[in-house]
Deep mutational scan, measured.
Amino acid sequence: KELVSALYDYQEKSPREVTMKKGDILTLLNSTNKDWWKVEVNGRQGFVPAAYVKKL
């Protein structure tokens, strides 16, 4: 599985998104959309802005 690192804090703005803190390591589930990537963090799945994470 592919991992990404959070470059910035992000506070979810809808139920489809997830909150992350800078430095968090997230499991990348889907990166086909260039703007929003689906990740899993702390057992929750949702979307984060692609520009806020980088692949490890």
Rank of each mutant, 00 (worst) to 15 (best):
L3A: 06
K34D: 11
K34W: 07
V48F: 00
D24W: 10
L3K: 11
G23A: 03
V18L: 15
K55A: 10
W37Q: 02
V53P: 01
R16A: 13
G43K: 05
P49L: 04
V48D: 01
Y52K: 07
L56V: 13
P15V: 10
P49Y: 03
S14N: 12
M20D: 01
Y8P: 01
W36N: 02
L26H: 03
L29D: 01
E12G: 15
G46Y: 04
M20V: 10
K21S: 10
G23S: 04
K38G: 06
K38D: 04
L7N: 05
L28F: 03
R44A: 07
M20H: 01
R44D: 04
D24I: 04
N33V: 05
N30F: 07
K54A: 13
D24P: 00
G43H: 06
K1M: 13
G46T: 02
M20Y: 02
M20N: 01
N33I: 06
P15R: 10
A50G: 05
K54R: 12
E2S: 12
V53R: 00
E12F: 07
K13D: 06
V48K: 00
T32N: 12
G43M: 05
E2V: 14
L3G: 04
L29C: 07
N42M: 08
G43Y: 04
S5P: 03
V48N: 00
W36L: 04
K13Y: 05
S31L: 05
S5W: 15
A51E: 11
Y8E: 11
K1F: 14
L3H: 09
L28Y: 02
Y10H: 04
A6C: 13
L7D: 03
V41K: 13
S5H: 13
D35C: 14
V53S: 00
K38F: 15
N33Y: 09
W36E: 04
D35L: 14
Y52E: 02
V41F: 15
N30T: 08
K55H: 11
Y8D: 08
S14L: 08
I25Y: 06
L56I: 14
D9S: 09
T27I: 15
S5C: 15
E40Y: 06
W37T: 03
N30M: 08
E17W: 03
Q45N: 07
P15G: 10
Y52D: 03
V48P: 00
R16W: 15
K1P: 14
A51L: 11
L26M: 14
E2T: 14
V41C: 12
N42V: 05
K21V: 10
E2N: 12
R16L: 14
S31Q: 11
L56P: 07
Q45M: 11
A51V: 10
Y52F: 13
P49K: 04
V53H: 01
K21Y: 10
L26G: 10
I25M: 08
T32E: 15
A6Q: 00
N42A: 10
L7Y: 04
L29F: 04
Y8R: 15
F47C: 13
E2Y: 12
A51Y: 10
A6H: 01
A50Q: 05
K34Q: 12
W37R: 01
L3I: 10
Q11V: 14
T27F: 13
N30G: 07
M20L: 09
N42H: 11
Y52G: 07
A6K: 00
K34P: 14
K13P: 04
M20K: 00
S5D: 04
M20T: 03
V39C: 06
